[in-house]
C-alpha cells in the first residue's frame, strides 16, 4: 500500500535539504580532487618509495666512494651519461675491479663487474627510473679542484627532477 504522502511526491523543503547535502559532498569531493591534482603537478614522483631505487643508489654510492678512477671505456662501453664506468676497490678490499653501470635501457639498470680475466658478472634492477650520470670536476668555493664528482639525476615523466645526488670518491692513500 502506498501512503498518501508518497503519492503526492516530495515537498520543496525535502528536495532543498537533499540537494544541499549533495552539494556539500560534491564540494568536498571536488576540493580534495583539485588538491590532489595540484600536488601531483607540483611534486616529482617519489622514486625512493621503490626498494629497487634505494638498492641501485646504495650500490652506486659504494662503487663511487671507493673509486680510484673513471676509465673512458671498457668492453663495448664508453663513459657517457648512460654508462658510468668506475674503477673501484673490490669488496674483498685487496683487489680492484671495473664496474659498468649501464643505464641505457629504459626501466632497467645493469651493473656489470669486470675483474682480471674472469667473465663479467651482472646484476640487474628493474622498475627503475631513467638515470643520467655525469663525471665532472668538483667545484669548491667557485674553484675547480683535482677531485671528480659523479652527479646522478633521475627525472619523472613530467620532467621534474626527482633524484639529484652527488657522490665523490673518498681520498685514498
Amino acid at each position: 500500500m502506498v501512503s498518501r504522502r508518497r503519492a503526492r511526491g516530495y515537498s520543496l523543503m525535502e528536495i532543498v535539504v537533499v540537494m544541499a547535502l549533495f552539494g556539500v559532498f560534491l564540494f568536498i569531493l571536488v576540493t580534495l580532487t583539485a588538491e590532489m591534482r595540484r600536488n601531483e603537478k607540483k611534486w616529482p614522483v617519489n622514486f625512493f618509495a621503490r626498494p629497487e631505487v634505494g638498492s641501485i643508489l646504495a650500490r652506486m654510492r659504494h662503487d663511487i666512494l671507493d673509486a680510484t678512477s673513471f676509465p673512458n671505456n671498457i668492453d663495448t662501453y664508453t663513459q657517457s651519461p648512460t654508462s658510468l664506468i668506475v674503477y673501484t676497490i673490490a669488496p674483498d678490499r685487496s683487489s680492484a675491479e671495473t664496474v659498468v653501470w649501464d643505464l641505457s635501457k629504459p626501466g632497467e639498470v645493469h651493473r656489470k663487474v669486470y675483474k682480471a680475466n674472469l667473465p663479467p658478472t651482472e646484476w640487474v634492477a628493474r622498475q627503475a627510473p631513467i638515470f643520467i650520470c655525469t663525471v665532472e670536476p668538483m667545484v669548491v668555493l667557485g674553484q675547480p679542484t683535482d677531485e671528480q664528482e659523479v652527479h646522478i639525476q633521475a627525472v619523472d615523466k613530467e620532467g621534474k627532477v626527482a633524484i639529484d645526488q652527488v657522490f665523490v670518491p673518498r681520498p685514498h692513500a
Binding site: 668538483m138 669548491v140 679542484t145 677531485e147 664528482e149 633524484i163 639529484d164 645526488q165 652527488v166 657522490f167 665523490v168
Partner: peptide, 12 residues
C-alpha cells in the same frame, strides 16, 4: 638530497 650534496662540498 640537497643537504647531502652540499655536505660533500663542505667536506672539501
Amino acid at each position: 638530497q640537497a643537504l647531502s650534496n652540499e655536505a660533500e662540498l663542505w667536506r672539501r
